[in-house]
């Protein structure tokens, strides 16, 4: 399986988080998955400005020629994309959200109503399955996790995908790799 991990940890001093992802990457590579681990904080990344040029002017191409292209290519070539970020104020980091917003070129402006609820059609006809890895904050409670999971589930619906798992970094990476193998 082709797997991409988007590391949305903004803090290079948060080693617990990065270590979890590196050890997961090592295990998944041992299992013969083709892996790319992208460090978003080291990338040049502009915020989406909502110009919609990637839909109506230069279809599929963003006005900003920054590192988002690497993320989009990785997204498009993967069977599984793991969105990873510490929880910050109850949600994924702004760094990861920025990358999420910039996925716009992979969808079309046109609306798919086949499920009885609007969503956009996909430009490339397919989307990877999503996995979510997070690190709880000191005050994270079950309400936060429910909100966080629900928002990612909603996004997966609009992206024609599904959330296969939502796991904290405390979850055993061996166990997670077994779960991924069963997918």
């Amino acid at each position: 399986m082709k797997i991409s991990i988007f590391n949305g940890n903004p803090d290079c001093n948060n080693q617990d988080f990065d270590n979890c992802l590196s050890s997961l990457a090592v295990i998944l590579e041992k299992e013969k998955h083709e892996l790319s681990l992208l460090q978003l904080r080291e990338m040049e990344y502009h915020h989406c400005i909502g110009c919609l040029d990637c839909w109506v002017k230069t279809p599929g191409i963003c006005v900003f020629k920054d590192d988002h292209v690497k993320v989009l290519r990785s997204f498009l070539s993967s069977d599984l994309v793991i969105f990873a970020s510490p929880l910050i104020v109850g949600f994924s980091s702004a760094l990861l959200k920025k990358a999420q917003d910039r996925l716009l070129p992979v969808i079309l402006p046109y609306i798919d109503v086949s499920t009885g609820e609007c969503r956009h059609y996909l430009r490339y006809g397919k989307a990877p399955v999503f996995g979510i890895i997070y690190q709880p904050e000191e005050d994270t409670d079950s309400e936060d996790l429910s909100i966080f999971t629900e928002l990612w589930t909603r996004f997966s619906r609009n992206a024609h995908s599904k959330v296969a798992f939502v796991r904290p970094i405390q979850h055993s990476v061996q166990e997670l790799s077994r779960e991924i193998a069963r997918m």
Binding site: C48, S93, A94, K97, K98, D101, L103, F155
Partner: peptide, 10 residues
């Protein structure tokens, strides 16, 4: 934006 707040708001 993607079912949540835009990145700038986050």
């Amino acid at each position: 934006y993607t079912d949540a707040m835009p990145g700038i708001v986050k």
